[in-house]
């Protein structure tokens, strides 16, 4: 069965080439996959590279897509696995240290305007979300932003349903505390 035989969009025709189909998949889900990758690495250039890798994997693994899951969840699963693996890599750890040093150097020379903008932005919800530990951040994003069900999140992240539930509860508590503390 082909990857797109199960897609939610009815406008795919049998005459479409694999390239055309992938183009359609990327048009439909490109942004969502990119945003998901961004929540992991918090850096746009890197997130774009990772999203490209995700679609490349989808291209390669198209034949293994069984259609039991939605195409969206299947893509998220590839994305979550790829981004988590990347975060564990020594390359990422090294680049994070370099980035922190650069930010520190840059931070010492911030203008008054930049500091004012930062203060204004500081209390925005997304800032608190991005400060959460990864395992809570991904659950919050998939549940509230991507609007996946708990079962779908459990499948995507390969974790027990009860674990996902408790992570979501804990994440909400942490966010509540962070917002209270920030205000």
């Amino acid at each position: 069965m082909h990857i797109l035989s199960y897609d939610r969009k009815p406008d795919f025709t049998a005459a479409m080439t694999q390239e055309e189909m992938m183009e359609q998949v990327m048009t439909d889900y490109g942004n969502e996959v990119l945003y998901l990758c961004y929540t992991y690495v918090k850096e746009w250039n890197l997130a774009e590279d990772l999203a490209q890798d995700v679609f490349l994997k989808a291209y390669e693994k198209a034949d293994t897509f069984k259609g039991e899951a939605k195409l969206k969840t299947w893509l998220y699963k590839i994305a979550a696995n790829h981004c988590r693996d990347y975060i564990k890599s020594a390359h990422y750890r090294y680049s994070m240290v370099t980035h922190k040093i650069q930010m520190y150097i840059k931070g010492t020379s911030s203008s008054v305007e930049e500091i004012a903008v930062y203060r204004e932005e500081k209390n925005k919800l997304y800032r608190h979300i991005f400060k959460l530990p990864l395992k809570y951040r991904e659950v919050i994003f998939l549940y509230y932003y991507e609007e996946l069900t708990l079962q779908e999140i459990s499948d995507t992240l390969n974790a027990n349903l009860s674990t996902i539930k408790s992570r979501l509860t804990k994440a909400r508590l942490l966010l509540k505390d962070a917002i209270k503390g920030g205000k």
Partner: peptide
């Protein structure tokens, strides 16, 4: 945070080329 960012045509082209 997502404002002005997206998986645009150039990204899609790169994926096809890489494949």
């Amino acid at each position: 945070v997502f404002n002005g960012h997206g998986f645009d045509k150039s990204n899609r082209r790169i994926v096809h080329q890489r494949y």
